[in-house]
Design a protein around this nucleic acid. Structure first.
Length: 511
RNA sequence: GCGCCCUUAGCUCAGUAGGUAGAGCAUCUGACUUUUAAUCAGGUGGUCGCUGGUUCGAGUCCAGCAGGGCGCACCA
């Protein structure tokens, strides 16, 4: 092409510093000159993946005889031009299929257009008939090829794909176009979420939606995001958990409820933390934490079978078999087992326990009670070593402000956490439904907040009022969906399982 | 917030000892009617993240900044 006509056609865009983009702008300008450049009148009647499923096994000559007509649309992902015939691959939501374009088949003018004006990344609509090449690949012998959308930016390389992690996160659409593993991962995520919903629905649970914007953030120990409602001129908090609302619904008579949606916590980012993340919480009346452990074990087993086809899951080089019964042990047992130097009697002696923590290099605070000390020691010395699926039970009441006290030992709660691969996957407990006990624990939390702990809970008077009407004996549980997906997709970072993970803003979009 | 590492063509990556920028793919020109990382011949393409410093000379050495990755801390 000559440079004069290029500037005439498209003006300043011809000066795009990127020559590849400028060339495509020029092609689009020529297209505009001939009519609507972004048509929306092409209709397809087939998908690449479905055609493979149906016809890959059909004999070459049978396929040739039947001459099955198809209309397909998709993105041009590869192209091999050999004189008067060309092969290319179209990619749609279901996969890829090869198209065969001949001058003989679509006419001289259309073939020249195909050779001259199309680029990788363009979106095409084609019609033709199915056939198999001499190497046996199911393909479409095109009778028509239409350009539906001109792609103005070149795609990443066809062979290596897109490898730059930052670009994958910032421009996930590109990652999805060129990296089939990324597509597969997010399809897997969707399958996991779908299965979880079906599992709970089949057991009579009601899916509900409770407020994401709360006047009093509750249900977890974490810092909230704060926003402001203009008309009401009041602060609102993005929820850190739906827990207190879900239990209000159990008070209201929805005896099995769940919510699977986003929580927001104003804390650091890491390979395991994103400011917004997806949590499943479910509550069942007339059940206890033991019932939930059994159910969780079954859920994960069924889930693995459904989405992976096996109970064996591989995570970062380790294999775990979910078919084997999950280990169960108490916080106390775990502390003793993983801290052989620890005298188990010292677990109940604040001074000795604090000294032990300090010897382990764990910084303690003066207002920590025995429960907090035990919990910190557990987090620092046990959690990451719980590789095989393990339920840990009997968490200290001091660190479990919403959980029911154990009848034999009120210093601990009827609570469990599930660990797999050293990561917390689930947290559940028999719910505290004694309104007076709950009010007392809220007061302790509110005191801690007043004393400067930004993560301590607020006193939620309406929640206490709800409990005063009577919360049935109930068990509830939260499962971090992102971490579950990480586990099931062998992903080392939470960003790999979030379509659009949180990143600092780009200084200026480029490329 | 702290520590370590990374940033070179549209993409994937090289870049020696400080001496003025390379490959493959993509793109452009030409050849080619069953290719599939098509092939063959020829060409274009760079603010080496940004700013400053050292030096006769910096992609390379130093400092600051930005973005990213990993770890720590906080947390799920």
């Amino acid at each position: 092409m000559n440079e004069e006509s290029l500037v005439d056609l498209i003006g300043p865009q011809a000066e795009d510093p990127n020559r590849l983009i400028a060339q495509r702008h020029a092609k689009l300008a020529r297209l505009r000159a001939q009519g609507p450049a972004f048509p929306n009148d092409f209709r397809r009647d087939a998908l690449a993946g479905e055609l493979h499923n149906r016809y890959d096994t059909l004999e070459k000559d049978v396929l040739e005889r039947r001459a099955i007509p198809v209309r397909l649309a998709g993105r041009l992902m590869s192209r091999r031009i050999m004189g008067k015939a060309s092969f290319a691959h179209l990619q749609d939501m279901s996969g890829r299929i090869q198209i065969f374009v001949q001058r003989e088949g679509i006419g001289e003018e259309a073939y020249e257009f195909f050779k001259r004006e199309l680029d990788l990344g363009d979106i095409l609509g084609v019609s033709g008939r199915l056939f198999k090449t001499k190497t046996g690949e199911l393909s479409v012998r095109c009778e028509q090829v239409r350009l539906l959308v001109k792609s103005l930016r070149p795609l990443p390389e066809k062979f290596h794909g897109l490898a730059d992690t930052e670009t994958c996160y910032r421009q996930r659409y590109l990652d999805l176009i060129v990296n089939p593993e990324t597509r597969a991962l997010f399809q897997m995520r969707s399958a996991i979420v779908r299965f979880v919903r079906q599992y709970l629905d089949a057991r009579g649970y009601l899916e509900v939606e409770t407020p994401m914007m709360q006047a009093i953030p509750g249900g977890a120990v974490a810092r909230p995001f704060i926003t402001h409602h203009n008309a009401l001129d009041m602060p609102l908090f993005l929820r850190i958990a739906p827990e207190l609302y879900l239990k209000r619904l159990v008070v209201g008579g929805f005896e099995k409820v769940y919510e699977l949606n986003r929580n927001f916590r104003n804390e650091g980012l890491s390979t395991r933390h994103n400011p917004e993340f997806t949590m499943l919480e479910f509550y069942e009346a007339y059940a206890d934490y033991q019932d939930l452990m059994d159910m969780t074990e079954d859920l994960l087993r069924q889930l693995a079978l459904a989405v992976l086809g096996t109970t064996q899951i591989s995570y970062q080089g380790q294999t775990y078999d979910l078919a084997r019964p999950f280990a169960r042990l108490s916080v106390r047992e775990a502390l003793v087992r993983f801290n052989p130097q620890l005298d188990s009697d010292d677990l109940d002696k604040p001074e000795q326990l604090r000294a032990f923590l300090e010897r382990c290099g764990i910084k303690t605070q003066g207002d920590w009670g025995i429960g907090k000390l035990q919990y910190e020691l557990f987090e620092q010395t046990v959690e990451e070593r719980l590789l095989e699926p393990t339920f840990v039970t009997a968490y200290p009441t001091e660190v479990s402000p919403l959980a029911r006290r154990n009848d034999q030992d009120p210093q601990v709660t009827d609570r469990f956490e599930l660990f797999i691969g050293g990561r917390e996957i689930a947290n559940g407990f028999s719910e505290l439904n004694d309104p007076e006990d709950q009010a007392e624990r809220f007061r302790a939390q509110a005191a801690a907040k007043a004393a400067g702990d930004p993560e301590a809970m607020y006193y939620d008077a309406d929640y206490i009022r709800a409990l005063e009407y009577g919360l049935p004996p109930t068990a509830g549980e939260g499962i971090g969906i992102d971490r579950l997906v990480m586990l099931f997709t062998d992903s080392p970072s939470i960003r790999d399982v979030l379509l659009f993970p949180h990143l600092r803003p780009e200084s200026k979009p480029s490329g």
